[in-house]
C-alpha cells in the first residue's frame, strides 16, 4: 500500500471507534471514578473522593446469607434473588432448550414452522412480554379462570413472593428459550449424519445414540449456552421490572434494578453507590466470562489431544 492509503482504514474505522470510545470505554473509566466518590453531584469534579466507602457500604454485612443483617439489605436481597433466579432460570431453560432442539432435529414435517414457534417470543420486547403475562396472571385473568374451573382458588399470582418469583422465572424462560434452542439446534445439525448411520449400523439403541454420540458431541455448544445464559440471567432487568416492579416488597428485585433505582429512581440519587454496585456486578460477569474462556480453551486442548 502507498503511504497515502495507510490512513484509509482509519478513516473507515473512525465513526465506530469514536462511538465505542465515547459511549463504552469512557463510561467504563468514569464508572470506576464514580464508585470511589460520594455525594449526589453528577459531575465528577464536584464529587468528593471517598475511597472504598461505597464498596464498604455495600459489603457491610453481619452475615452475607442474611440480607437483614446487612447495612444495604436491599442490595443483598437483590443479590440473593438474582442468584436464585439465575440458578433456576438457566438450568430449566437450557434443559428445555435441549429437549426442544433434539425434537426439532428429528425428521419432522414443517421444521421451519416449529422452530419459528419457539423462536417468536425472543423477538418480543421485554415490555410486551411482561404485559402479555401480566394480562394472563392478573386477578381476573385467564389463568385464574382456568384455575377456578378446576378448583384452584383465585390467586394474585404476582402478589405472593413465592409465586412472583416462579412466574418471573417462567416468563423469562418463555421469552428466551427459543434463542438457546436455535444455537443448540445449529450444534446438532453440525454433527455429521454418517455418525448416526454408523451408530445405527452398530445397532446402538436410540437412547445410547443420544447419550454416547449426540450429547458428547454437543457438549461444547451446551457449555457455551450455559455460560451465555448465565451471563444474561445475571443482568435480567426489564421484563421483570415491568411485570412485578421488583415486588411484592423486594421479592423479585434484582441487582440491575438495584443499580437503576439507586442511581435514577430515588429522591437522593446515589451515583457512587450505584456505580459500586455495577462494579461488583462486573466482577461476577468477568468471572463468568473467564469461565467461558476456560471451557473453550479446555475444549480446544481436548480436541488437540484427541
Amino acid at each position: 500500500m502507498k503511504s497515502s492509503t495507510a490512513r484509509t482504514p482509519w478513516f473507515f474505522l473512525t465513526p465506530n471507534l469514536v462511538i465505542f470510545g465515547v459511549f463504552t470505554f469512557l463510561p467504563i473509566a468514569i464508572n470506576l471514578y464514580y464508585a470511589f466518590t460520594g455525594g449526589v453531584q453528577l459531575y465528577p469534579k464536584d464529587r468528593p473522593f471517598v475511597g472504598t466507602e461505597n464498596l464498604a457500604t455495600l459489603l457491610d454485612c453481619g452475615s452475607y446469607l442474611d440480607p437483614a443483617s446487612c447495612k444495604k439489605d436491599i442490595f443483598w436481597r437483590a443479590v440473593w434473588n438474582t442468584a436464585q433466579f439465575s440458578l433456576f432460570q438457566v438450568t430449566v431453560m437450557v434443559l428445555f432448550s435441549l429437549i426442544t432442539a433434539l425434537v426439532l432435529n428429528r425428521k419432522i414435517i414443517g421444521r421451519g414452522f416449529w422452530r419459528g414457534v419457539y423462536f417468536y417470543p425472543v423477538l418480543l420486547s421485554p415490555v410486551v412480554v411482561a404485559l402479555i403475562w401480566k394480562w394472563i396472571l392478573q386477578r381476573e385473568g385467564v389463568l385464574n379462570a382456568v384455575g377456578v374451573a378446576v378448583g384452584v382458588p383465585q390467586t394474585l399470582w404476582l402478589a405472593e413472593p413465592g409465586w412472583a418469583m416462579f412466574w418471573v422465572i417462567f416468563v423469562s424462560i418463555w421469552a428466551h428459550m427459543g434463542f438457546y434452542t436455535l444455537i443448540l439446534l445449529a450444534g446438532l445439525q453440525a454433527i455429521p449424519a454418517d455418525l448416526y448411520e454408523a451408530a445405527q449400523m452398530d445397532r446402538a439403541s436410540p437412547w445410547r445414540t443420544l447419550t454416547r454420540v449426540t450429547l458428547p458431541l454437543l457438549l461444547p455448544n451446551l457449555l457455551v449456552v450455559l455460560v451465555l445464559a448465565a451471563i444474561k440471567a445475571v443482568q435480567t432487568f426489564d421484563e421483570v421490572f415491568v411485570l412485578t416492579g421488583g415486588g411484592p416488597g423486594s421479592a423479585t428485585t434484582f441487582v440491575v434494578q438495584f443499580i437503576y433505582q439507586t442511581g435514577f429512581q430515588e429522591q437522593v440519587r446515589l451515583y457512587g453507590l450505584a456505580a459500586a454496585g455495577s462494579l461488583l456486578l462486573a466482577v461476577a460477569l468477568i468471572a463468568l466470562t473467564l469461565l467461558q474462556l476456560k471451557i473453550s480453551r479446555a475444549e480446544e486442548a481436548g480436541e488437540r489431544a484427541r
Partner: peptide, 22 residues
C-alpha cells in the same frame, strides 16, 4: 477491541453513560 465491547453489559455503564449523554 471492538469485539471486547460485547462483554460490557449496558447495565454496568448506565450511570456514567447518563453523564456522557447529559
Amino acid at each position: 477491541l471492538i469485539l471486547s465491547t460485547l462483554m460490557v453489559p449496558p447495565a454496568i455503564v448506565l450511570v456514567p453513560n447518563f453523564l456522557v449523554i447529559s
